[in-house]
Amino acid sequence: MSTPDPNNDKRLAVMAEMLYLCNLLLLPGIAFIWLLLLNIRRSSVASPLALCHLRQTLAASIWAGVLLIPITALSILMGGYQSVTGWTVAILYFTVCHASLVLLGVVGLAKAMAGLSWRYPLIGPVCGTRP
């Protein structure tokens, strides 16, 4: 019976966090699908550390989508394209929310690189449970 390679586990955890950040910063949607596939394919064989990061990043990515797209769109649509208040709220909300999610991802990435588990505050499931 083979023992799991800790380096591979760490790599998988780092990969998950990087895809989360990539989804927010570079390739929205594509990176999410990649992360989803990684979760489907590797969850059953991943170590607790890698599994924790896979689950966290998937849940956080879904939350990011919910927090960023509909709420921003709603604040513009409700105010109308000509409403300065709508744009002010939308731009401020999107910038603050997006930057906060990126910063959480940075902390997650640093934890994964150090071989530590990490739970996204408020939006991440408890490690060891389904998202």
Binding site: V102, L103, V106, V107, L109, A110, K111, M113, A114, L116
Partner: peptide, 14 residues
Amino acid sequence: FFMMTVFAFNMVNQ
């Protein structure tokens, strides 16, 4: 700046 943030947190974690 992004790398600096990862760097600082990574060093503190390790």
